[in-house]
Amino acid sequence: MWQGHELFLSSLPKLVPYIPVTLLCFLAPTAVSLVLGTLICRIRVGRKNALYYITSLFVSFFRGTPGLVQIFLFFFGLPKVFELFGVNINGWDAVVFYIIATCCNFSSFVSEALRGAYEAVDKGQIEAGYSIGYTRFQCFYHVIAPQTLQIALPNLKNLEIDLLKGVATAYVIGAIDVMGAAQRIISQHRGYGQIWILLAAAALYFVMNVVIEAVFNFLTYICNRHERVRI
């Protein structure tokens, strides 16, 4: 066990080529969820119509079940759904299933983070917007959206970091990201030195994590500029 550090070093270059896959599994849900999450949030802060209850059920399900279970559900269930329409998607890569499942999951969390932030926005700010003659859109664009985003940012940062780390679960359906590649090397070594290979994967995730955290800290810095001036 203790003599495996050369295995650590030799597996690093084998794992690095899979970083783009991990990043894809991270960036695609991020992009989709910013749109979908905003939409769901908009519906959930509005009037209680059918759409409200449908999205509420959606959010409750995806927040109330483990991501791991959702991945399996999409991996085994989505082909059956497409079968109904005569489309065979069994050939799709597991990464695609992971991304679709994660988009649903992550949108739910993003919508809740945004909703919480929206409710925390000082309503006087919105009234102030209308009082100077803003239209509804102008009020949303100039007052509500920036302030909501600023309040939601710390939460979003934590969610994004979780999203990145969650990619390590994608290997359970055979998606080959950094973790999947590590598992593959482990099976090639027939169970020898798993710890060192896993540590190599851990190191790569840690580095990605540090980068993402830095990006978000920078965003927070930009968003909070006006607060600092006052001090």
Partner: peptide
């Protein structure tokens, strides 16, 4: 910081493999 920067899945497998040693 290190613990929070590494996926739970990786930590779980690390414990699974390392604790027996």
């Amino acid at each position: 910081t290190v613990i929070k920067g590494i996926p739970l899945m990786v930590q779980l497998l690390l414990c699974y493999y390392a604790i027996p040693y």
